[in-house]
Simulated assay, not measured.
Amino acid sequence: MEIKAQFLTVHKAKGLEADIVIIINCNSGKHGFPSEMSDDMVLNLLLSEADQFENGEERRLFYVAMTRAKEKVIFIADSSYKSKFIAELEAESGDSQIKKCPRCKVADLKLKSGITNGKKWGFYSCTNYIYGCDYQQWI
């Protein structure tokens, strides 16, 4: 069995198809997908109001990337720093077994626990902490 693989940017993949598409770097952050750098103000001047929404251009690119797959699309992301696009897909699918943060609504809650001076402790913490959500739920 021979496996052929190509590594393409989303821009280069426009108009192409593949049986399986793997989208890497579906993480949040400055170099994630979407990048957390601000949207291009010049581009927003050229777009109609209907096209001006948060991460609009990268959202369209993400859609292009997802729709290149004939059979299956696979997303690669760090579970602690998932892209908001991945969080939105999980929320819409209803398949996620992971608890979502009730404050920011998009990040996951991660269990942190331990033993101090012989006493067990634990709490759920929002994985969006580095971006300003300080939600915690003690158990």
Rank of each mutant, 00 (worst) to 15 (best):
D78H: 11
K84L: 11
I23W: 01
K84T: 11
H11S: 10
D39Q: 15
K120L: 12
I20F: 10
K4W: 01
N55W: 07
G56F: 03
T116L: 13
I24K: 08
F7M: 08
L61F: 04
S28Q: 08
W121F: 15
S28M: 04
F62Y: 14
S125H: 05
A18H: 02
A87L: 05
S35F: 02
I139F: 12
E90P: 02
L47G: 00
E54K: 10
K119I: 10
T67C: 06
G29F: 05
G56H: 04
M1D: 06
C101Y: 00
F75S: 00
G118W: 02
S48E: 15
S79D: 06
K110T: 11
D51K: 14
R60K: 13
Y131M: 07
F33S: 01
A107I: 00
G122N: 14
H31A: 11
M1I: 05
C26Q: 05
Y124C: 02
G118F: 03
Q136I: 15
Q97A: 13
C126F: 09
I139L: 14
K119R: 11
S79A: 08
K72I: 02
V73G: 05
H31P: 00
Q137H: 13
N55Y: 15
E49G: 04
R68I: 06
L47Q: 08
D19E: 10
N117F: 07
D39N: 15
L111S: 09
D95A: 07
C133F: 04
L47V: 01
K112G: 04
S35I: 02
E71C: 05
L16R: 11
C101P: 02
W121K: 03
G29Y: 05
K70I: 09
A5S: 09
L46T: 14
G118L: 02
V10Q: 01
F85E: 02
A69R: 04
I76L: 13
L111W: 11
Y81C: 08
C26I: 01
K100Y: 08
E2N: 12
L61Y: 05
L111H: 06
V73N: 04
K112V: 15
I23D: 01
E71H: 09
I115N: 15
L46Y: 13
T116W: 12
I3A: 08
E49Y: 04
G15R: 03
S28G: 07
N55H: 15
S38K: 13
K119W: 03
C126Y: 05
C126D: 04
F75E: 00
D51S: 13
K105H: 07
F75T: 00
S35A: 06
I20Y: 10
Y63W: 09
